[in-house]
Amino acid sequence: MSSERPNGLFRNIPAKVAAIPMIITALVVFMGGSLWTMAYSLTKSKLLPKWKFVGLDQYERLWSTKRWVVSIENLFIYGVCMLIASFVIGFILAALMDQKIRFENTFRTIILYPFALSFIVTGLVWQWILNPEFGIQSIIRGLGFTSFEFDPLYNADIAIYGILIAGLWQGTGLIMVLMLAGLRGIDQEIWKAAKVDGIPTWKTYLFIVIPMMRPVFITTLVLVAASIVKVYDLIVAQTGGGPGISTEMPAKYVYDYMFGGQNLGQGFAASTMMLLAVLVVVIPWAYLEFGGKKRG
């Protein structure tokens, strides 16, 4: 046995070697790619990236484009509604599922099934369901209610909610499953103690069980938030951004400008704005969650 303390750098060599590919990926692809994108968003690159510095021109143009502003508004509406509704519905479904019901496996599978479909399929299916010619509206009218109107995808004011319905249909199942796992992790004796204390069920959920499920909520929040920010294929399949530009989303804007409009600079500026938006949310949260105090 050597009497000197071994150099920390050379301990656990295999683990360090194994981590190198991921470290390189994180540095080059994530960090490097982001920085490169930010740098070139300050140029007037068109079809190919060209280093012709124009300052913040691309951003000025971006924010004076109606389509971008609408995209941001849509993302905000879709994001807030999706977060709240999918959490509420997902949790309620999970709570109902947790009442020792029969055929729980069957119900769980049915509710989780939409998650197994791609957004393209979901978008197409809901495009048909919401189509006034042969969807819900025509069925209800066929039953005799001839003045019934339900065509959200054809009304520019509410088309985004038509997208929201499809998004919820697809995303809620996963949230339910995560919440159910969280509920199952709660000690049954907590429920018994609350019952002996005479605390009503809804209060037990609200003040005892949900606070205990905090880690599950955070995991779910990260998953849902990521799916909201990157929503793209659902729009393409369901509305193509229409009617007009009423259901445009930032991710679609980025894609269209980079690969469709041959305007890389504009696309880079838009994606940098998206990154910025995510950081604005994540940094304060991470600071609150991990900063200041040591976890224990």
Binding site: I190, A194, I199, P211, M212
Partner: peptide
């Protein structure tokens, strides 16, 4: 009745005082 459980079944997000008083407050 009052009941004591094997796993203690305390409400983890509340202080000791909160644990003792939650049922009473609720009543």
């Amino acid at each position: 009745i009052g009941m004591v459980f094997q796993s203690y079944a305390l409400y983890p997000q509340m202080t000791v005082e909160g644990n003792l008083s939650f049922g009473l407050k609720n009543a």
